[in-house]
Amino acid sequence: MENNSLDDELERLTRNPRAARGLKDGLERLARGENGPVFSEMAKDLLSGRIDLRSVAQSSAYGREFGAAYADFERWQENLSDEERQKTLRDVKSILDGDPPQK
């Protein structure tokens, strides 16, 4: 599933090659079905070039699933302690800077 236009689009969107790679890795996990059939279909379509990110963002077909996933994320984030939140932010920054996260 090689889609160079998706790679270019992710690079433009993130302005960070590591972040773009992370997003693509996430799409590859979704394509394997890790978050259900709807996200799997969407990720496969993105990775194959059958659909682009703009079309996904404008699609009502994925709205319910994105809304539910975002609500789950918000609940997770709200339940983090200040220490956990700061560690998560440090870990993400380290990954984006090319360093392994600290334990």
Rank of each mutant, 00 (worst) to 15 (best):
I51P: 00
G33Y: 07
Q102H: 03
A43M: 08
G67L: 12
E83R: 15
Q77C: 03
Y62V: 15
E2A: 12
D82E: 13
M42F: 01
M1R: 03
Q77K: 14
D52M: 09
R75N: 10
L23R: 03
D8K: 14
D52F: 05
N3T: 05
D52Q: 06
A20W: 01
G98D: 07
L89E: 10
M1V: 09
M42I: 12
A31G: 05
P37W: 09
A20K: 06
T14L: 12
A19H: 01
G63W: 00
R21K: 13
A69D: 00
R90Q: 09
Q58I: 08
K93Y: 05
G36K: 14
S48P: 03
D82H: 10
L46K: 02
G22W: 03
E84I: 06
R50S: 15
P101G: 13
T88R: 15
S94W: 01
A71E: 11
D45T: 04
N4L: 13
S81I: 11
D45C: 06
E34P: 01
P37C: 03
D7G: 02
L96C: 09
R90T: 06
A20R: 07
E83Q: 09
N35Q: 13
Y62W: 02
D91L: 10
S60Y: 01
D82K: 14
S40K: 15
Y70A: 12
Q58P: 00
R29W: 07
T88G: 03
D25A: 12
E74F: 00
W76A: 07
R29Y: 04
E83S: 14
L96G: 10
F66E: 00
R75M: 07
I51K: 14
A19Q: 09
D97R: 11
S81T: 15
S60A: 12
F39L: 15
I95E: 06
R12E: 10
G63I: 02
F39K: 01
R64Q: 08
K87I: 04
E74D: 03
N3W: 00
W76S: 02
S94L: 10
L46C: 12
K44W: 00
N3V: 06
Q86Y: 09
P37F: 08
K87N: 06
R32H: 04
V38K: 15
E84V: 08
R12T: 08
R15H: 06
L80R: 15
D91H: 14
P37N: 08
N4P: 04
D45L: 11
D99M: 12
E65A: 14
A68S: 08
I95P: 00
R54T: 04
G33H: 09
T14A: 15
L6S: 01
F73I: 11
E2Y: 02
A31M: 07
G26Q: 07
A31T: 06
S55M: 12
R54G: 03
I95Q: 05
R75L: 11
Q86E: 14
E84S: 09
N4K: 13
A68Y: 13
D7Y: 05
D91K: 11
L46I: 05
N4I: 15
R21L: 11
A61H: 04
A71I: 05
R75C: 05
R90D: 11
E83L: 12
N79P: 00
L89Q: 08
G22A: 11
D91N: 14
M1I: 10
G63L: 11
S55R: 15
A71S: 08
D8R: 13
S59C: 09
G36Y: 11
E84L: 13
